[in-house]
C-alpha cells in the first residue's frame, strides 16, 4: 500500500470546545499519520461529532490547535478547509434529495472546478469542457462505489444504504487527501455493513489517502483501523493500536456496563 504523495498529517493539540459552560471537548490531542486509517470511538456524547465539526470548521475551537500539514484549520471557514483536500461524509445524510446522484457527486467537484455564473450561462468553451471532463470522473467514482446504475436517479429515492454510499462517493468526488467518515455504517443492516467496510478498505488501498473514522461499531473499527483514539466525556482516555486500546483498563471501564451492544444503538 502506497501513501499518495501530497497527504499530510493531521495533528490535534489540546483542542477544547465549550458550549455555555459545557465542555464538549477537553484538551483532546491525537495525530492522524499520512495514509493511515484512524478511528475515533467513544460512548454517545463523548465528543466525537464535535471533533469532526471542529475539523471541518463548522465549530470553532475555544482553544488548542488543529494542523493539517502547514495549515492551521481552527481559524478557517469550512469551504477553505475543503479546498485543502479535507472531505467529509455526514452521519445524518446531508444529500440534496431532489438532485440526482450525478449532481450530488458533481457538487463534490465544486472546489476543483471554476465555471461561474457567466461562463455557465453563456456555455463558454471552458465551462462545457470542464463539465464534461469532471462528469466522466464522477461517473468513475460512482462505479467505484457501486452506484453506476443509479447515477441519474434522484438521491432521495435511493435506499438508505445507497444514500450512505452516495455520501461517501460525494466526499470522494472532492479528491480528498483526508477523508472524514462520520459513522458510515450507522443504521445499516449487516450486509450493507460488510459492503461499506469493503469499500473503506478499498478506498484506502486504491487511493492511499488518510481516513479518519468516527464509528460506534466496534467490529468494524477494530477490524480495519491502524490506530484508535477513545474519547469519553470530551476527554481522550486512550490512544493506540486496536489491540492496545481493547485491553486498556480505562476503555474497559468507560464501556463497562454499557458494552458494545448499547454503544451500537
Amino acid at each position: 500500500m502506497t501513501v499518495a504523495p501530497d497527504v499530510a498529517a493531521l495533528v490535534l493539540t489540546d483542542v477544547c470546545v465549550r458550549f455555555a459552560g459545557l465542555k464538549a471537548l477537553d484538551n483532546v490531542s491525537f495525530t492522524v499519520e499520512p495514509g493511515s486509517l484512524h478511528a475515533v470511538i467513544g460512548p454517545n456524547g463523548a465528543g466525537k461529532s464535535t471533533a469532526f465539526n471542529v475539523l471541518c470548521g463548522i465549530y470553532t475551537a475555544t482553544s488548542g490547535s488543529v494542523r493539517y500539514g502547514d495549515h492551521e484549520l481552527t481559524a478557517m471557514r469550512p469551504h477553505k478547509i475543503a479546498r485543502l483536500g479535507v472531505a467529509r461524509a455526514f452521519q445524518n445524510i446531508a444529500l440534496s434529495k431532489g438532485q440526482t446522484v450525478a449532481e450530488n457527486l458533481m457538487l463534490g467537484r465544486h472546489a476543483l472546478t471554476r465555471a461561474g455564473f457567466v461562463s455557465s450561462g453563456l456555455r463558454l468553451r471552458p465551462a462545457t469542457r470542464e463539465g464534461r471532463r469532471h462528469g466522466e470522473r464522477v461517473r468513475e467514482i460512482a462505479a467505484f462505489v457501486g452506484l453506476g446504475d443509479k447515477f441519474a436517479q434522484p438521491a432521495g429515492l435511493l435506499s438508505y444504504g445507497d444514500q450512505k454510499r452516495v455520501e461517501v462517493a460525494r466526499a470522494l468526488a472532492c479528491e480528498p487527501r483526508l477523508l472524514l467518515l462520520d459513522e458510515p455504517v450507522a443504521g445499516m443492516n449487516s450486509d450493507e455493513k460488510v459492503r461499506m467496510a469493503g469499500l473503506i478498505t478499498e478506498v484506502r488501498r486504491e487511493l492511499g489517502i488518510s481516513i479518519l473514522l468516527v464509528e460506534h461499531d466496534m467490529g468494524l473499527v477494530m477490524g480495519i483501523s491502524d490506530r484508535v483514539t477513545v474519547l469519553d466525556f470530551g476527554k481522550r482516555i486512550a490512544d493506540g493500536t486496536p489491540s492496545e486500546v481493547q485491553n486498556d483498563p480505562e476503555v474497559v471501564k468507560a464501556y463497562l456496563g454499557t458494552g458494545e451492544d448499547e454503544a451500537d444503538a
Binding site: C56, G57, I58, R77, P78, H79, I81, A82, R83, A87, R88, F90, A94, L95, S96, K97, G98, Q99, L107, G108, H110, A111, R170, C174
Partner: peptide
Amino acid sequence: DSEVAAAVMGVD
C-alpha cells in the same frame, strides 16, 4: 438544501 453540507463540500 443544507448550508453546512455545501460549505463542507467546498462551496463558499
